[in-house]
Design a protein around this nucleic acid. Structure first.
Lengths: 202, 202, 202, 202
DNA sequence: CCCTAATCGAGACGGTACGTCGTGTCTTTCG
DNA sequence: CGAAAGACACGACGTACCGTCTCGATTAGGG
């Protein structure tokens, strides 16, 4: 069970701690560079220059630029994807999928995530890290509304939640990452409608 | 009197047209490098060296390494995704989704496509090219089984085929590109089952 | 046949050889940097920048900055140390030692040589290279006046020329490299006087 | 080589004055590094690590690594170059030049001195310091035997001692620093012989 | 039947960014 | 307050690829 850590630890096992100021400057610089210049514009040298930090300071704490972007992403992304709780499955899902879509397509953090997912296709090691540090947790969030409904008895207890969730969010990611076709509310609401009819009928 | 060369003399350029030999060597080298060393191992210099070709010959015909990979991919990929035609929607879809999954997760061409989709996240221009040169056509293939069923009167004519297709293949791409969780036949068959119940009911 | 063949191949860097233009720019830049900013100012990056050349072009042809300086030195140094030939030992030696002193203490090439000799104290491998590529030849020049006198019968044939030469030039190098005290004509003439009395007496 | 470290309680600072233990550890580490890894191996970081001392402790007391080496050198070198006093000029000089040669070519301290002389060629400021802190004193030692002879009336009082000394030791330094040719007793004795004949005759 | 033009191999070039090393300064913690 | 620990900004290192640029050889077609 994970409990919320109070604050980032000031000391890292050493006698002294790293510079929080440098850490934040790096993360913000990486974020900004990605949004402004795209993935190719995110170079360690550009981050260092733009953060007013020495390259060695970056390499002391991160091993690759995607490592930096991941940290930057995690710092911002947490609060953007709060799962709503109206006490009713339909509104919860409709709301959540709209938020997810907005996050993926409109927010800066979403742009970072798309870049990271892109890089994960090129680097299996990073893919694993990305899953451990974000996607697993995100998957839990994706399930939350449905699991609450199961808890309330609104849905059968033996529902294969994982598969259902993938049918809900999969098409959204597919349009965002693959086809590039727009994801409007009609589309997400339709996904929810299909799902509700599917689980009601069964 | 002709001298018998043991090895066939290498094509060394001619006035009209490019060397097919060089073209194929480049495509194959790019493909091999991706499969063996990953995306980072695909460099123009490595392709040139491994294909026994001059860098300039590459730059004469392609502008980027992803351009090469896309060409290589298109050369192989076409036949791997033939849409089956059993005359019945259910078997057609089940068969096709299995093939698609196998293509995405098991084949070398699928590995190349995943790399290209990854790169498309970093380069909107390339994303557009990828859509024009492959994904649009692929989308048509994805629709084919359903459209044939519409033609046969098995499905209503006003069906929103695009949205339906995305609900069918979206979850597969999502698992492949995002979660990395396995896509087995149970999962694809379930997608088809859900779809058939959905369209029968409506 | 005319001897007026234009034998100045203007290579710009191609399959048939390196760029003479780049080579000269590098040597001159290294030389200038040494004279203007001292040995610490001679960095590969500064040479590259000041020569308008890529670092890799430098590393393609030289392995260390002292390698460059040695090349630069050899290019200039040759003509500065011509051995005079008045047909008489005394004037020859007096003249030569004055020239040597001027070379070591006043010329840019001398400054480079002092730097190279300094580096040779830190790097035995380079010391060996320096000997092979310059000092051996220089030693021959140092002996030349005396050997001519031996040839003329002015000096005994069994003279230990090497030891005599070291007694002539050694004190000059010593003052230049170690004590830093000035080397005037009185000092060099005295060395010659001592030598002549020594070999006449014996 | 580092002596076997007994786990003695390390000095950790006190209110009055610097740590003699740290000072000696630094000097010894610098010396050892020079002898074992050459001049390039002498870095402040390596000295600090190998002496078990913080970098700041080094910078508190020395300004450059050559400063450290000079201190280390002065600590050892003094006793190696005692001027003999047999009461006779010839034996004194012969003995002294042999000792000087041995010091320059065979001893660890000589290796340090050669490195320092090398560095002096790259850094005029350091050259001045080296003269002030060692070479002037050494020059006095070089003169001592001769001056004693002048005192005894063995040599004329108006002898230009400085010039004579340079003719004696110059060739030795020249061979050591420049040509790298061996300096044997025959060579040093010959220098003395030449000198004695020269001053006797005059 | 040479002449010409396109293409080939080879590889040097000016660059950008990489990841590492050493410098000298600074801050924190301990005794 | 000196010393150990070590993070920091800075600058240079030497390497890997990038995309461009000759060069000489090769080989059709057209003159």
């Amino acid at each position: 069970m994970k409990s919320d850590d109070v604050a980032a630890p000031r000391h890292r096992g050493n006698r002294h701690g790293r510079s929080e100021q440098a850490r934040l400057a790096v993360l913000e610089a990486a974020d900004d560079l990605l949004v402004e210049k795209g993935f190719a514009g995110v170079t360690v040298e550009a981050i260092a220059a733009s953060a007013g930090v020495a390259k060695q300071t970056i390499y002391r704490w991160w091993s690759t630029k995607t490592d930096i972007l991941l940290d930057a992403f995690l710092q911002d992304a947490a609060e953007d994807l709060v799962v709503p709780d109206h006490g009713d499955l339909g509104p919860d899902l409709r709301d959540y999928l709209r938020r997810l879509t907005h996050f993926l397509t409109r927010s800066d953090a979403g742009a970072v995530l798309r870049a990271l997912l892109g890089h994960a296709q090129h680097d299996p090691g990073f893919a694993a890290v990305l899953r451990t540090r974000f996607l697993d947790e995100q998957h839990d969030r994706d399930r939350l509304a449905i699991e609450r409904a199961v808890h309330r008895g609104q849905l059968p207890a033996d529902l294969d939640v994982a598969a259902e969730v993938d049918q809900l969010v999969g098409p959204i990611y597919y349009r965002v990452l693959v086809t590039g076709s727009p994801v409007d509310e009609q589309f997400t609401d339709r996904l929810v409608g299909t799902f509700l009819r599917r689980v009601d009928g069964s």
